Computed example of a mutant assay.
Amino acid sequence: MSGGVSQGPAWADGKPVLVTGGAGFVGTNLADRIVRQGGTVIIYDNLSRAGVERNLAWLRRTHGSRIIAEVADIRDADRLAGAVARSGAVFHLAAQVAVTTSLTDPRTDFEVNALGTLNLLEAVRAQPLPPPVIFSSTNKVYGSLPDLALAEEGERYQPTDHAQAVGVGEGRPLDFHSPYGCSKGAADQYVVDYARSYGLKAAVFRMSCIYGPHQFGTEDQGWVAHFLLAALERKTVTLFGTGRQVRDILHVNDLVDAFVLGMANMDKLAGQACNIGGGADNAVSLRQVLDIIGRLDSRPVEVSYGPWRVGDQPWYVADSAKFRGLTGWEPAISATEGIEQLYWWLKSNRIDTAPDLPAAWSIPAVG
């Protein structure tokens, strides 16, 4: 982990750390790190996404009673308040995560992402000593970046103004696009304003594309893992648009480093939003990722093409200089190295359907 920690972990006080959406792939990796650093984690998750039951089973098998499972929905304000009341720090990752789903069911998208976040903030605000909060936002708050002039350079798009290739900074105006962008953007701004209006120690991470172990990606979300799974299962990958879209992918271990550093430096971060991504050094196009996978799998991935999707960004790279300056964080895992690691992890751990939870976990309430 990079330097810059100003104090010990927020879970050093012995109170559990609440991770909403904690059985998801990011939450699983974060919970694992927290427990390995001596903490206890409340996994608050409704287990609605395929594969998350397996993640929860792995956490319980690995860490036993240091993992407390609270199987509940972020829209259940009373259950959420009870979990917050027991917590010494909060990582808010629970979300409806797909642009496509938000377009077909915008009400549920809003209720989960915007109202769910308000439920959390109100629960935090109600505590005598409100725990610090880091919220997982998205680069989609910047919209589709239609003003960014791009040119095709081989298998990727690149800004024609090379000064912009360092990435998008937090000074870029917000431009919510798609119901998902609106719901996550509203939540993003609520977190920033609750820090400003109520003095909460709360910060926002606007994240790029995250990938790594415990991710069971789909066509709509988690595209690096989805590409890898398709290759392993000899399925065709559909590229929407040209496939030259660029993202600065970030390995989940580097993101967890950022979460830990962010919580330890909350006095500096409270009330701020920071871009978190792999940066220009880890910027790859969809086609380039497929080329890497083809070399790993010793055969090209079959590809078909579909129309551009609503709100898609032809090019997005995060400029994380603000967060680096505040915490000393730097990504350590290159795109090529990380994709290879995930390839071998998925080769050993891919699933067709998620198993049921053991009967002992069928009663979700705790405490």
Rank of each mutant, 00 (worst) to 15 (best):
E170K: 12
G325Q: 11
T336I: 13
S197L: 13
S178M: 12
A321K: 10
R61V: 14
V284L: 14
N113S: 01
F176S: 04
P300N: 04
V84L: 06
G167R: 00
V252S: 00
L174C: 08
V35L: 06
C274S: 14
A149T: 13
I249S: 08
T28R: 00
N113Y: 07
S348F: 15
V133Y: 00
L296P: 01
A151R: 02
I134A: 07
Q158K: 14
L56I: 06
T238M: 07
M266I: 09
C274D: 14
R156T: 07
A332N: 11
R244E: 01
T40R: 04
N253R: 15
L232G: 05
A187Q: 05
G22Q: 02
V84D: 04
G143C: 05
A10T: 12
I293G: 03
G64I: 05
H63R: 02
V260T: 06
H63C: 03
G154K: 02
Q158L: 15
W344Q: 11
G277F: 01
P314H: 00
D147L: 15
R247D: 00
D319G: 03
K268E: 12
I339F: 03
S178T: 13
A94D: 11
V141D: 05
V124I: 13
A203K: 09
R33E: 09
E330I: 08
E330T: 13
L47Y: 00
L120H: 05
H92P: 00
G4W: 12
G262C: 12
A23C: 09
R49V: 14
S48V: 12
N275L: 02
R54T: 10
T353Q: 12
G338N: 02
V71A: 15
E219H: 04
G262T: 04
R234F: 12
A195P: 04
E152P: 13
S65G: 14
A23D: 05
A98Q: 05
V71D: 11
T104W: 06
A186Y: 07
N55S: 06
N46T: 01
G306K: 07
A283P: 03
G212S: 01
H92K: 03
F176E: 07
I34L: 03
D188V: 06
L80R: 01
I249Q: 02
G143T: 03
S197G: 15
N349C: 01
P300M: 02
G279P: 02
W11R: 09
R206S: 02
R206K: 11
S362W: 10
V112D: 00
F91G: 06
M263R: 13
Q221R: 15
M1R: 14
M263D: 06
D220H: 08
R156K: 04
V252M: 10
D248I: 07
Q221M: 12
M1T: 14
I134G: 07
Q215N: 10
T104V: 09
V99C: 05
G185S: 04
A165F: 11
Y305R: 07
M1N: 14
A12W: 14
G143N: 01
D220V: 11
